[in-house]
Design a protein around this nucleic acid. Structure first.
Length: 619
DNA sequence: TTAGGGTTAG
């Protein structure tokens, strides 16, 4: 075959991309003929062959070895060839360190090579890939260097370049720079990608209100960018994160009016928004209309029920998901296990645990943390400890430590809880305790009456970790002082609080003063509760119990009478227990259970045993 | 005569 005929042959086949790109045999034939004929050194032919080799290697995940070798054989690659390589590497896997697999780092290395050895400049097509690589590697300095270069090359007004640039900045956590780039894009030029990138950038930077402000601006501007599915998904995500129901509803209305197709992603975002805003009926309604529901969609609703403290519904929905043969993943499992923990459904939790082990679902840290929490809450502290200790020191995050410390405190193992907290602090500062960790620590102190230690940790939290105590921390301190019969100190502590005490705090003081016979303080606390919750009867019930324990029967009678006059009815207290996967509920003076007689008989026996051991319900 | 951006939900 002569050079000309070979050239014509190659070109004709190259033109027919669809045939060649699916058949590596054809490709190899063309490649060898182009090399043999010398046609490979033609810039158009070599870059076209490179593009074809890349399309063939697409199915071969993350292995760009062959295209790279081909590229290295091109003596003077043109800008097309460079850009094809930039594109391939910028999209490749970030967590590959070996030399044989591709990584975005190689995009940057190739770029440096292009500049230094070939003296070439990138063009408008190169920049989006280069910025993408910088973003994925968090190379903000390199990104800034490239940003300057866009000015030198007069490409600073190209909307593709600007959009990629602003995404790069928000990916690197430089939201301010991203916003600046966004503001510099003229309204007439901004397209839907510019707006979406800015909204998504704000979400990445956890600035949800800003994200919604940009979205709102987009709706008002309406120049040449109408919101698309991605815009609405982003906006719904922002609403979900801050629980902004009004805006979420507005977006729902917008997508209905504009006849958006409710695909599984948009549908899940909507379910998640309603669920996070506590609107479970709406969440369920939307969920039921989504075709081809996947695991994310189911998990949104399961998590929503858990978020609204509807743990039973959350577990039931998981069962329904199982029945529909949708495979759960780690996020679903972590959520269901947490619901089991909160509802005391130990058997169900155990079943989910075993089910995961059998079905090979990956036990990530969230699942392990949820298991620690569930076993602790259900009283199987040994099992919780076993899971916790199986975690390496470097594996444990703040949730693992907090779940275990709180679990130990909850099970009355205060010394162990405080020891574990010391270990956490001594673990080299890998994990810093947060506000919730300190709640566990303070409750451990409270359960064993360690007043001095409680104050030590309360100060330690603010002074060493700069954590601002929340109302719950003040509540723990009042509880601690109250239980230790330091009622005057508790009162002084409440008056000195920088935030308004809530009903929990007053209830804690009422309970403590009642237990220690300080009726005056109990009455004072009850008044504060009534001021905060005039329609509820909790304070009066507690106070009437206090009067009863002091044998002040006329006061008890008056209290009940005033409640009856104001038609206040006490909601009966309720507790529950799970046996063989069934949750049994018990109300005060409840005799509806089919095994009531043996249950009461057992309670009487238990009381006899613990009273013989010195138990006094007043203390 | 080749090519470009936002991967968005738990």
């Amino acid at each position: 075959m002569t050079c000309n005929s070979a050239g014509r042959f190659c070109l004709s086949l190259i033109e027919n991309d669809r045939v060649v790109s699916k058949n590596s045999k054809h490709f190899n034939q063309i490649l060898s003929q182009s090399i043999a004929s010398g046609l490979f050194q033609d810039p158009f032919v070599s870059s076209k062959l490179l593009l074809l080799s890349l399309s063939l290697s697409d199915s071969n995940a993350n292995n760009l070895h062959f295209p790279h070798t081909l590229f290295s054989q091109i003596q003077n690659p043109n800008i097309f060839a460079w850009n094809f390589m930039f594109k391939a590497y910028s999209h490749s896997n970030t967590n590959s360190n070996s030399n044989t697999t591709a990584s975005p780092q190689q995009c940057i290395s190739l770029y440096n090579l292009m500049r230094r050895r070939f003296g070439l400049f990138p063009d408008r097509h190169s920049f989006p890939f280069l910025f993408k690589a910088c973003a994925r590697l968090s190379l903000s300095h390199k990104g800034q260097e490239l940003h300057s270069l866009t000015f030198k090359l007069g490409l600073q007004h190209d909307v593709f370049v600007q959009n990629a640039l602003l995404s790069m900045y928000s990916f690197c956590g430089l939201l301010h720079n991203a916003r600046q780039v966004f503001d510099e894009i003229p309204l007439s030029v901004r397209d839907v990608v510019s707006w979406n990138s800015m909204v998504s950038g704000c979400i990445q930077g956890r600035c949800y209100w800003d994200a919604l402000k940009v979205f709102d601006e987009m709706l008002k501007c309406d120049v040449n960018a109408r919101p698309d599915g991605v815009t609405l998904i982003n906006a719904l995500t922002a609403c979900a994160r801050i629980g902004f129901l009004d805006m979420g509803r507005k977006i729902h209305g917008l997508l209905v009016r504009n006849e958006f197709v409710l695909d599984v992603i948009l549908g899940s975002s909507l379910v998640d928004m309603y669920a996070k805003c506590g609107q479970m009926e709406h969440a369920r309604k939307v969920f039921d209309t989504i075709p081809d529901k996947n695991v994310v969609c189911w998990t949104c609703l399961i998590a929503g029920y858990a978020h609204s403290h509807l743990f039973k519904e959350s577990i039931e929905l998981f069962r329904e998901m199982q029945a529909r043969r949708v495979t759960a993943d780690a996020a679903t499992i972590a959520c269901v296990i947490s619901s089991c923990g909160h509802s005391g459904a130990l058997d169900q939790g155990r079943w989910v645990h075993t089910h995961c082990e059998r079905s090979g679902i990956h036990f990530n840290l969230s699942v392990k943390n949820a298991l620690i929490d569930m076993y602790s809450k259900c009283g199987d502290i040994q099992r919780a400890l076993k899971i916790f200790h199986a975690l390496n020191l470097t594996e444990r995050d703040v949730f693992s430590w907090t779940a275990m410390i709180t679990g130990l405190a909850l099970n009355g193992l205060s010394d162990e809880a405080l020891n574990l907290f010391s270990q956490m602090e001594m673990s080299g500062g890998i994990v810093r305790p947060n506000e919730v960790t300190f709640l566990g620590v303070l409750s451990a102190c409270s359960h064993t009456g360690l007043v001095d230690k409680g104050f030590h940790y309360f100060n330690h939290m603010t002074q060493s970790y700069n954590l601002k105590p929340r109302i719950e921390h003040y509540g723990c301190m009042v509880d601690l002082l109250g239980r230790a019969n330091l009622l005057a100190e508790a009162e002084r502590f409440i008056s000195a609080m920088p935030i308004q005490p809530d009903v929990v705090i007053w209830r804690s003081l009422l309970f403590a003063s009642g237990s220690h016979g300080n009726i005056e303080l109990a009455e004072f606390s009850a008044k504060r509760i009534e001021e905060l919750e005039p329609k509820k009867c909790g304070a009066r019930v507690l106070l009437s119990n206090v009067y009863a324990s002091a044998s002040r029967w006329s006061d008890v009678k008056n209290m009940r009478k005033s409640m009856a006059l104001q038609r206040i009815q006490k909601l009966p207290g309720c507790s529950f227990i799970e046996i063989d996967g069934v949750v049994h509920e018990f109300f005060v003076a409840d005799d509806s259970h089919c095994q009531m007689d043996p249950i009461y008989e057992t309670i009487i026996q238990i009381n006899k045993v613990i009273q013989a051991e010195g138990f006094d319900p007043k203390i």
